[in-house]
Simulated scan of single mutants.
Amino acid sequence: MTEAPLPEGFHFRKLQITDKTDYLELLSHLTTVTPMTDEEWNSRFEEINSLPHVYYICLVIETTTNRIASAASIFFERKFIHNRGICGHIEEVVTHPDFRKKGLGKAVITHLLNMAHETYGCYKVLLSCKEAVKPFYESCGMEHRSQTMMKYWL
C-alpha cells in the first residue's frame, strides 16, 4: 500500500507525555472529553506505553507551530484464528478544524494501515464509523464488510 503524502510542513510522530493539553483539545473535536488531572493523564499514558506492541497513537504535527493537526490510534489484537494472526483496530480518528481539507486524515489512516500490514503483519484492520464518513474511509482503501454491533455504558 502506498503512503498518502503529508503536505509540506507536516510530519508524523508518536504521542508524547507532554501532549496532554493539545491532544485532549483535539479529541474534543471528535467526542466529549472528560477533564483529567496531570496524574490521571500520566498514569494512562504510562499504561498505554507499557504495551508498545499493542497500542499506538499517531499524530500529525504542523511543523511551524508544533500544533497537533490530526491524530488516530491503533491497537493490535492477537488472535488464535487465522494462524494466530493479528487484527488491527483503528480508533479516534480526528483532524482539527483548522487543518481539514489538507489530506491529513487520509495520510494518518494510510500510515496506520501500512504499519498494521507491513510492521505487524495484520490480516485485517477494523474501523467503525458513522454512515456520513463512510466515503472518506472508502477513499482510504477500506471497504464496508459487515455491521458493527455495540453496547455503550456511557
Rank of each mutant, 00 (worst) to 15 (best):
M1D: 02
M1F: 01
E3V: 02
E3T: 02
A4F: 13
A4Q: 15
P5F: 11
P7V: 04
F10D: 06
H11S: 10
F12D: 08
K14R: 05
K14T: 14
L15P: 12
I17A: 05
K20F: 03
T21E: 15
D22T: 01
Y23T: 00
Y23D: 06
Y23P: 03
L26V: 06
S28G: 13
H29L: 01
L30V: 08
T31I: 06
T32C: 01
V33A: 00
V33Y: 05
T34F: 10
M36C: 15
M36L: 09
T37R: 11
E39Y: 03
E39P: 01
E40K: 14
E40D: 15
E40G: 14
W41Y: 06
N42D: 11
N42R: 09
R44D: 11
R44W: 09
R44L: 11
F45A: 03
F45N: 01
E47Q: 10
E47N: 13
E47I: 06
S50I: 00
P52Q: 10
P52E: 05
H53Q: 12
H53P: 14
I57Q: 12
C58V: 07
L59F: 07
T64Q: 12
T64L: 07
T65Y: 09
N66L: 03
A69K: 01
A69G: 06
A72S: 14
A72Y: 11
A72V: 03
E77M: 13
E77L: 13
K79T: 03
F80D: 11
F80K: 02
G85L: 00
I86L: 08
G88S: 11
G88E: 08
I90N: 10
E91M: 12
E92M: 08
E92W: 08
V93R: 12
V94G: 05
V94C: 04
V94Y: 03
H96C: 06
H96T: 04
P97K: 03
P97S: 04
P97Y: 02
D98G: 08
D98F: 02
F99S: 03
K101N: 15
G103L: 05
A107N: 11
A107Q: 08
A107L: 12
T110K: 09
T110W: 04
H111A: 04
H111D: 07
L112I: 08
L112N: 04
L112R: 11
M115D: 04
H117V: 01
H117K: 12
E118Y: 02
E118V: 00
E118C: 05
Y120K: 09
Y120G: 00
G121C: 00
G121S: 06
Y123K: 04
K124N: 14
V125N: 06
L126R: 09
S128C: 08
K130D: 14
K130R: 13
V133Q: 10
K134N: 02
K134L: 12
P135R: 03
P135D: 14
F136P: 09
Y137H: 14
C140M: 11
G141A: 04
M142Q: 07
M142K: 00
M142D: 07
M142F: 04
E143N: 12
E143F: 05
E143M: 13
E143H: 12
E143I: 12
H144Y: 13
H144P: 00
R145E: 13
R145N: 10
S146E: 11
M149N: 04
M150S: 15
M150A: 13
K151W: 09
Y152S: 14
Y152V: 07
W153T: 15
L154W: 05
L154H: 10
